[in-house]
């Protein structure tokens, strides 16, 4: 699996007086098994960019190649392709429509033209994977809690067995518990299915905790593409100028350093922070 984004640009209201650039000359590569974090302020073009990756938005400039095939080619079958790059939208629970949870998850695989038993098998697997109990299968999806609804919606995408999984702000609007559930689910999916995951977020703590590689967008441009550790350690002030920040743990480390305590400047996860503090106290 490889996904290459090559100099992609996108304008809203192209060729009109109200033209505005949403994505500006973005290039990056998604490798097998990678966990990528994509951060940026509201309106920085994150959502627009990820909608390009499964062909929901047609590329205006640049190319996107999936396994060596150019998806921007006019004769490329986008409809079949969309199932291979799973995109979970913001507030995905708003797309639920069936009478019961199980049928809703069946919608995706059924659209792939699979046999009934294969569809049901996939739906069952996906629901198990996101941790929905058997007794909830035939409930109305609208009777579930917020976190559960969202997990059902994610299962709806997982059931299509995508080769890449993109999640656009999967924790938005959830309480801390629902948030933790979703995040640990995403990590579990990454470990078990070994597919690359792109996590769009504006929580620095989440991406520091999970992502191996970090993309930072600002005003439609891709400004950094590096490991979270390098980005947070080297570009602290620039991030703040963009209206972003560094993870809370990293902020504490810097406060400690200002007070003359030799805390490591590159600790970004809670685990690293705890270890660093223990080290200092010892």
């Amino acid at each position: 699996m490889s996904l290459i984004v090559n100099h992609v640009s996108y304008y809203y209201n192209r060729n009109t007086a109200m033209q505005s650039k949403a994505v500006d000359d973005v290039s990056f590569v998604v490798q097998d098994g990678e966990f990528i974090g994509l951060i940026g302020q509201t309106g920085s073009g994150k959502s627009t960019l990820v909608q390009h990756l499964n062909g929901l938005i047609k590329t205006q400039e640049g190319q996107i190649c999936f396994n060596g095939e150019d998806i921007t080619d006019s004769d490329f079958d986008l409809r079949a392709f969309r199932s291979r790059v799973g995109l979970v939208f913001q507030y995905p629970e708003h797309q639920l429509f069936e009478e019961d949870v199980f049928s809703d998850v069946c919608f995706g695989p059924r659209n792939l033209g699979l046999t009934k038993s294969e569809v049901e098998l996939r739906a069952y697997e996906a629901l198990k994977q996101v941790g929905i109990a058997d007794e909830s299968f035939y409930q109305s999806p609208f009777d579930l809690s917020g976190g559960e609804k969202r997990r059902v919606a994610i299962a709806g995408v997982l059931a299509m067995k995508p080769e890449v999984l993109i999640l656009d702000e999967p924790t938005a609007g959830l309480d801390p518990r629902g948030r933790d559930e979703i995040l640990s689910l995403i990590r579990k999916l990454h470990d078990q299915n070994n597919i690359p995951i792109i996590l769009v977020s504006h929580s620095m703590d989440d991406v520091a905790e999970y992502a191996v590689s970090l993309l930072v967008m600002h005003d439609g441009k891709l400004v950094y593409d590096d490991s979270p550790r390098n980005v947070f350690a080297e570009h602290r002030t620039e991030l703040e100028e963009m209206g972003l920040s560094v993870p809370e743990v990293n902020k504490i480390m810097h406060l400690l350093r200002e007070k003359g305590i030799p805390a490591p400047a590159d600790a970004i996860t809670i685990k690293e922070g705890v270890e660093a503090c223990l080290e200092i106290l010892r």
Partner: peptide, 13 residues
Amino acid sequence: DKIMKAQMARGAD
């Protein structure tokens, strides 16, 4: 627009 895209991502036609 949003819901349409979300369902298209699930293979809706």
